[in-house]
Design a protein around this nucleic acid. Structure first.
Lengths: 140, 140
DNA sequence: CTGTGTGCAAACTCTTTGCATAAGT
DNA sequence: ACTTATGCAAAGAGTTTGCACACAG
């Protein structure tokens, strides 16, 4: 099964126009094997190390951007210094927790946006991101 | 009128629990005199210089964060390395143009979000940001 | 006067880049 | 073999911090 998955991942990487190198396949596996995830370059780097794949941080950045260009990942629109990548590239939405700078998917969702105006001339909508910012409830 | 505005701005700064110093008042004036704006620290710094207010970049950062804590500004949730501050702290929404990393308000808007689920235990919604990502329309 | 704010420069964090080495086809 | 990817370390951008001087109350 590891074999089948690896072959499948390799194909995805190849389809993106990238050589299925050890590092890229390993990173793709970490990214896409476990369902939807949001993570930063540094987090993925640590995971790779932990998984026994000695990949450099620069390579992680390269791979993340290449995957993004290929449409396999999307960059999350959240404040904060770090860039977060999302393995779910379809329209879906997030909670952002103030203070801890963490992002969670909004689950079980039929969230819908109404009355969106027409985009300006010559532009089209690439996607719509909704970020619901949460804060600890004040003691009542 | 400049007088009245300045007095008003000074009061706002004072109400935020901050001393109405030359720099803070000047920055507040630039920020709040012209309606809704989104700008980075560096942009505000340049504007201040251009307006003949020789304020340092560090002070701009300080002021922006202090105004944000006081609820006079909000940090925009957009990707990219720079932090953008928004002078409109009420629920309203943005276009983000891919490539040029620019943010525009969505105008004339009755944009509404439907079916937002309950937030998790102990959390409340601080606000909801909608970012509509635009890209150039492909030549048809 | 007394305490807070400011400005400068150095430090820090995250990300990108250049170039020699290694790996894929 | 030939080309592209990787890893390292150094550079770069944006932001924060520490400390002496200046200003507001």
């Amino acid at each position: 099964m590891g074999q089948i998955c690896t072959a499948h991942i390799e194909q995805q990487v190849r389809d993106a126009g990238l050589r299925p190198t050890r590092q890229r396949v390993a990173l793709a596996q970490l990214l896409f094997a476990k369902g939807d995830r949001h993570l930063s370059a540094e987090e993925l780097h640590e995971e790779a190390q932990a998984a026994g794949v000695p990949v450099s941080l620069a390579t992680v950045y390269n791979a993340l951007h290449q995957f993004t260009e290929a449409g396999m990942l999307r960059i999350l629109a959240v404040e904060g210094s770090k860039t977060y990548f999302d393995t779910n590239t379809s329209d879906h939405h997030h909670y952002f927790v103030e203070g801890e700078n963490k992002v969670y998917d909004i689950e079980g969702t039929a969230v819908k946006v109404m009355n969106l105006p027409e985009p300006p001339e010559g532009m089209e909508i690439a996607n719509v991101d909704i970020v619901v910012r949460l804060r600890p409830k004040r003691t009542s």
